[in-house]
């Protein structure tokens, strides 16, 4: 079943197509949700809400661009909504959290995705959200500012702080590995 047929079936409310979509996208989308939300239960909640939104509004999807991208965007929005509901304070700028980036850290290709996920989880929710949106999802600062209801400047400063924290963690990792 190709994407166009899948979307058509979904638009007709086909239950089989819904199951098919879930089987295909549940894993990747759960990965997306987990990048924003540390808690697995919260991520599953967002996944359920996201899929329900997809089924509900699939008739609004025009056959332009990738359907997966559309689904992913819904998931990201759901995750951000959950994040805002859950820990709204963490989205604010934390001025105390300024860490200097360690220039020694090098990109270690041996590092596993699990370790990197753990690092991401160390970040405050606000930093993590902006880093996810900018570095991984590829949104612009302007888009991020609209999605998170913050200013572009805030988005930029959150991103640089998130990067600094991650580089420091990478450096620590390198030291630990060296020992």
């Amino acid at each position: 079943m190709n994407e166009t047929d899948l979307v058509k079936a979904l638009q007709e409310g086909d239950a089989k197509a819904q199951r098919f979509l879930y089987d295909r996208y549940a894993g990747p989308m759960m990965g997306v949700c987990l990048r924003y939300l540390k808690n697995e239960m919260d991520a599953e909640e967002v996944l359920i809400n996201g899929f329900m939104k997809v089924f509900q509004h699939v008739n609004r999807f025009e056959q332009k661009g990738s359907f997966e991208g559309w689904v992913r965007r819904i998931m990201v929005n759901e995750a951000l909504q959950q994040l805002r509901k859950q820990e709204p304070m963490h989205l604010a700028i934390d001025k105390e959290h300024i860490h200097l980036a360690s220039e020694d850290a090098s990109a270690d290709s041996d590092m596993s995705a699990e370790e990197m996920m753990d690092m991401l989880k160390e970040l405050p929710a606000g930093y993590r959200a902006v880093f996810n949106l900018y570095a991984i999802e590829g949104y612009s600062h302007k888009e991020i500012a609209e999605m998170l209801n913050i200013t572009e400047g805030t988005s930029k400063s959150q991103l640089s702080k998130a990067r600094a924290m991650l580089q420091r963690m990478l450096a620590q990792q390198g030291v630990m590995i060296a020992i």
Binding site: R19, Y22, A26, G27, P28, M30, G31, L34, R35, E40, A43, E44, L47, I48, E103, A105, S106, A107, M111, S112, A113, M116, M117, L120, F131, Y134, A135, I136, E137, S160, R163, L166, Q167, L170
Partner: peptide, 28 residues
């Protein structure tokens, strides 16, 4: 390590990393 490198490192590893949700999620 530049900021772009850092972004790329995380993007490559985490962008399409699937995590299997719980078995009961579909039923829920």
């Amino acid at each position: 390590m530049s900021a772009e490198d850092l972004d790329k490192l995380f993007r490559d590893k985490l962008q399409n990393r699937p995590v299997t949700p719980g078995n009961d999620v579909w039923e829920r």
